[in-house]
C-alpha cells in the first residue's frame, strides 16, 4: 500500500476536530450543571444542587409530566399506525408514488409550515387546543419515522418464510403473530423509541398547537422560555438529563436494529 492510501493521520486529525466541535459544547453544558455557582465564569466546586433545584421547580416538573404524556400517547398511536402502514406499503404489488410522497412528506416539510397549518386547522375547526392537539400533531411525523424504520426491515424480509408458514398449515393470523411479528419486533421497538425521542424533543409544532395557558406547556417550551433570557443554571442540569435520556433511547434503538446493517 502506498503512503497516500494508508495516510491515516490527516483522517484522525479531521475526526478529532469534528468530534471536538460536536461534543465540546455539550461537554461544557454537562460540566456546568455540576458547577456549584452555576455560572460559566468560574468553577466553584462540584455540586448537584442544580439537580435539586430542578426537583423543586414545579413548572419544570409539570412540563416534564406533560411531555411524558404527549410522548407516550403519540408513540403508541404512531407505532401501531406506522407499522401497519409499513406492512401495507411493502406488501403492495405495485409501488404507489402518491403513497410514497405521503409517507415521505412529514420528514421533509419545514416544521414551521406544518405548525402554522395545524394551528389554522384546529382553530378553523374551533377545537380547543391542549395536550391532545399536540399528540395529534406529533403522530404525523412520528408515524412517518416508525414507518420508514419498519419498512427498512421489511425490505430485507424474506417473504418466503410467510409462505412456508402457510404451507405448514398456519392461518394468516397465526402466521403474522408467530412469524412476521417476531421478525419485525426489533425494528418496531427501534422505530417507537425514535418516535418517543422525537416527540420528547419537539418544540415548534408543540408551541403552535398547545393553545393558550400554562397547563399544556411541554418541556421544550419550558426550556425555550428559560433560555430566551440567557443562562439559567437549572437549564444546564435539565439539559444534561434530557440528553442522557435521548442518548440512551437512541443507543437501545440502534442496538435493537443492528442486524439491519448486515443484509
Amino acid at each position: 500500500m502506498n503512503a497516500s492510501f494508508s495516510g491515516k493521520l490527516p483522517g484522525r486529525i479531521v475526526l478529532l476536530l469534528v468530534f471536538g466541535f460536536l461534543y465540546l459544547p455539550i461537554a461544557v453544558l454537562v460540566l456546568l450543571s455540576f458547577n456549584d455557582s452555576g455560572l460559566p465564569t468560574s468553577w466553584s466546586g462540584f455540586s448537584i444542587r442544580w439537580y435539586g433545584a430542578l426537583l423543586a421547580n414545579t413548572d419544570i416538573l409539570r412540563a416534564a409530566g406533560n411531555t411524558l404524556i404527549v410522548a407516550v400517547f403519540a408513540t403508541v398511536i404512531s407505532t401501531v399506525l406506522g407499522t401497519l402502514m409499513a406492512l401495507g406499503m411493502e406488501t403492495r404489488r405495485r409501488k404507489s408514488n402518491g403513497l410514497e410522497a405521503l409517507a415521505f412528506a412529514p420528514m421533509v416539510i419545514p416544521d414551521i409550515v406544518l405548525a402554522v397549518a395545524l394551528l389554522t386547522f384546529f382553530s378553523r375547526l374551533g377545537l380547543a387546543m391542549g395536550l391532545h392537539t399536540i399528540v395529534i400533531s406529533h403522530v404525523i411525523f412520528d408515524l412517518a419515522f416508525v414507518c420508514s424504520v419498519v419498512r427498512a426491515r421489511l425490505k430485507h424480509f424474506d417473504f418466503s418464510i410467510v409462505e412456508a408458514s402457510r404451507d405448514l398449515g398456519a392461518s394468516g393470523w397465526t402466521t403474522f403473530w408467530r412469524v412476521t411479528f417476531p421478525v419485525l419486533l426489533p425494528s418496531i421497538v427501534a422505530g417507537s423509541l425514535l418516535a418517543f425521542t422525537l416527540s420528547v424533543d419537539e418544540f415548534i409544532i408543540a408551541f403552535f398547537t398547545a393553545g393558550a395557558g400554562r397547563s399544556s406547556i411541554t418541556l421544550p417550551m419550558q426550556i425555550y422560555s428559560m433560555i430566551r433570557f440567557g443562562i439559567t443554571p437549572e437549564v444546564n442540569a435539565l439539559a444534561t438529563i434530557v440528553m442522557g435520556v435521548s442518548a440512551t433511547a437512541l443507543l437501545i434503538s440502534q442496538w435493537l436494529n443492528r442486524e439491519q446493517q448486515v443484509p
Binding site: V80, L81, G82, L84, M85, L87, G88, M89, T91, R92, R93, L99, L102, A103, A105, P106, I109, V113, L114, V116, A117, L118, T120, F121, R124, I136, S137, V139, I140, L143, A144, C147
Partner: peptide, 28 residues
C-alpha cells in the same frame, strides 16, 4: 395478501396523514 389487504393495512396511517397534514396544509 390479496389486492385490498395492503390498502387496508395502510389506511389508518394514510387517513391520519391526510386529515392532519394534507388537509391543514391545503387549508393554510
Amino acid at each position: 395478501f390479496n389486492a385490498t389487504r395492503p390498502n387496508l393495512l395502510a389506511a389508518p396511517g394514510v387517513a391520519w396523514l391526510v386529515a392532519f397534514m394534507v388537509v391543514p396544509c391545503v387549508l393554510v
